[in-house]
Amino acid sequence: MKLSTGDGWNPYLAGAMVGIVAILSVAITGQFLGASTSFVRAAGAVEQIVAPERVAQSEYYQSVGLRVDWQIMLLVGLLAGAAVGAWSDRSFKSEGVPPMWTGRFGDSVWKRGAVAFVGGAFAMFGARLADGCPSGHGLSGLMQLSLSGFVSLACFFAGGLVVANLIYGGKRS
């Protein structure tokens, strides 16, 4: 098995190393990888500027707690880590529309942006309802053999499979 495929590292190797990072994180700080709760904290912080009373009375925002915590710092680190990785092998690329998207829908940034916005909104609403995203349910949930992780991940994939094949028409290229 090749350790590097010319474009990036072998995904099995990079994945196994993420598993080790996850184990170390739990062993050292007791924190499990996750991402979506931070979007609730960020959204609440934005709303707090516009309507502080409403946020103060919101049961959900208060239960999550609007503060800078471990997971928000994880996402800040993730952003920096991805930038370091891209810089180290010169794969950083300013991209306004993904190539696969361009091949099917053209190179309009606004068209891609509008669909990404709507998709993002659906994804986060769903992730909060399911109580996790592919990091929290997928990685951390399955590592702990949590039933909610298996059910959620299967549904993430089922929903995505249907939509991806609808919009790309099931074509192979």
């Binding site: 990404a116 998709g119 994804a123 609403f125 769903g126 399911a130 109580d131 995505g160 249907v162 939509v163």
Partner: peptide, 15 residues
Amino acid sequence: NIVGGLLFGIGWGLF
């Protein structure tokens, strides 16, 4: 988990 998971999947496919 099921309703939220499917909604997430729909959004994931779009985004």
